[in-house]
Design a protein around this nucleic acid. Structure first.
Length: 474
RNA sequence: GGUCCCAUCGUCUAAUGGUUAGGACACCACCCUUUCACGGUGGUAAUAUGGGUUCGAAUCCCGUUGGGAUCACCA
């Protein structure tokens, strides 16, 4: 039997990191076995539906390269793959479950059910409708009375099941709630739809957040009542924002698209979140999606929650940026160069930036001095280690200007040799030439690249112009 | 509150009864160096707690503490 997993998000807004990680694990479990990964949209709650949310799901999955084998857009043998389009199926099975004794009609209003509950929540809802005979209930249904279908739980003792991550789970049947399976609007709840769909779609491994651990026995009861085999369960711990709170889309944190907008690469994000709750068992930590497909195993999934650490993601993103082919990095950086003056040598700029940034979002702060020289104090020329100050600058800048003016080959190597030669001729340290030159060209204490690299980025004309201005300022 | 789950450096984690408790990020120091970064070397830093079991416990068992989840006509 081929392994089949599904990613079953509800289209209620942005795709957050925890969701994406669950999708990743689902994808990897399927693909590690050469199985199928499918996409199912769980839109049974019309109130929470957000326009455009499904597109975000499609786009996110596509940009990270997690292609699905079956789904709403591409079809498959087990469709439809949108739950709202499967409404008649759930109704059919719900009524069947009533016949089978696994559920019953309930005519209580929502409020009646709520009032039954103790404020301490330790009294279970005792549904009076459970006492109705099937005959009588069916008559009331036929008469058009509004109803829901609730699960019937008569079993006693302990329910047991095996989870691939948490091991054996035992929960007393008395703890289980006789929840609503089919709502009065005819839509199923998650509790029912997921069971029916996972069975009908031949899902072999159900991967989901560990908040479902305690309701899984209810689902198993439904599988049993229908005489179906239940799938393997892989419950995964949550991704946390801090020790107390799950990562949420509120508070500006970590949706996939936010991170991409901040200049994180999809490959780095995938790599990082794969390691949030899973490890390969050795010290390696840089993995492409293809690598992960080969080495992923559920045995190495963790049981405890993991805090999302943007600092480590940022480091990892830097690793990915540095590993990029120069042309590819240049292409990604281009949008950030939109305002650059025409004299700028953009490929030289990319070359100096690539080893120095960790996210693409770092670019603007690095290149701000290029478009316009910042206001700066001549104090900037002072550097103890380089043994320079404004006086040294004033002394050396004219000669620097002269040497550079006579340079025809405008490359980093050539300029560096020329200025090093000048330092030798003047019998000063390299830094006493290069440091003032860099300040004169940038007006900043730290810059991406040294004096000669910046000169190459600025081009000869602009370089000489800035040196003249600097001399005048001194 | 009932039930379920979880607990190793600040963070992600390794070590499935025997290790000086390992790695990575971050942090600090040094080296490299035309500033910064990259790269290199080194350092600070953890088994929540109390009992068992055992020759030996981070590892197995029980309690405590702390955290999380769940108890919706949300998923």
């Amino acid at each position: 039997m081929t392994t089949r997993t599904r990613f079953a998000p509800s289209p209620t807004g942005y795709m957050h990191i925890g969701n994406l990680r669950t999708a990743l694990y689902e994808y990897l479990i399927a693909k590690a076995q050469g199985g199928d990964f499918l996409l199912r949209i769980e839109d049974t709650d019309q109130k929470r539906y957000v326009e455009g949310a499904t597109d975000i799901i499609y786009n996110t999955l596509k940009t990270v390269g997690m292609n699905w084998d079956e789904g709403p857009d591409i079809g498959g043998n087990y469709g439809p793959y949108v739950q709202s389009e499967r409404k008649p199926i759930y109704a059919e099975y719900a009524h069947k479950l009533v016949e089978l004794g696994g559920a019953h009609y309930c005519f209580c209003s929502k409020n009646e059910a709520d009032e039954e509950k103790n404020e301490e929540m330790n009294i279970k809802f005792k549904d009076p409708c459970k006492m109705l005979s099937l005959d009588e209930a069916q008559k009331r249904v036929a008469a058009g009375e509004p109803y829901v279908i609730r699960q019937t739980i008569n079993k006693k003792g302990k329910s047991k099941y095996h989870d691939e991550v948490y091991g054996d789970i035992e929960i007393d049947y008395d703890e289980l709630d006789e929840g609503v399976l089919l709502k009065s609007d005819g839509f199923p709840t998650y509790n029912f739809a997921n069971v029916v769909d996972d069975h009908l779609m031949n899902i072999t491994h159900v991967v989901r957040g560990n908040e479902y651990i305690s309701s899984t026995p209810k689902y198993n009861l439904i599988y049993e009542d229908f005489g179906w085999e239940h799938p393997h369960y892989v419950h995964v711990p949550p991704v946390m924002k801090d020790a107390q709170h799950k990562l949420s889309k509120r508070n500006g944190d970590a949706s996939f698209q936010d991170l991409v907008a901040k200049g994180y690469l999809p490959e780095a994000i995938i790599n990082y979140i794969a390691l949030l709750g899973w490890n390969p068992g050795n010290d390696e930590e840089i993995f492409s999606l293809e690598d992960l497909k080969k080495i992923f195993t559920v045995e190495r999934l963790n049981r405890s929650p993991a805090i999302f650490d943007i600092t480590k993601l940022t480091w990892m993103n830097g690793v990915y940026i540095r590993a990029l082919p120069a042309e590819k990095f240049h292409e990604l950086a281009m949008p950030y160069y939109a305002e650059m003056p025409s004299f700028v040598n953009l490929s030289a700029l990319s070359a100096t930036l690539q080893p120095r940034i960790e996210t693409l979002g770092d670019i603007p702060a690095q290149i701000d001095f290029i478009k316009t020289m910042p206001e700066y104090s001549i104090e900037l020329y002072s550097n103890k280690k380089m043994k320079t100050d404004a006086a040294v600058a004033k002394q050396n800048l004219p000669a620097i200007c002269e040497v550079l003016a006579s340079q025809d080959v405008w490359t980093n190597e050539a300029l560096f040799e020329a200025l090093k030669g000048l330092a030798e001729k003047l019998v000063v340290k390299n830094g006493q030439v290069l440091y003032p030159a860099r300040i004169a060209l940038s007006g900043k204490e730290t810059t991406p690249g040294g004096a000669t690299e910046i000169a190459v980025v600025l081009g000869k004309d602009e370089t000489l112009r800035r040196l003249d201005a600097a001399i005048a300022k001194l």
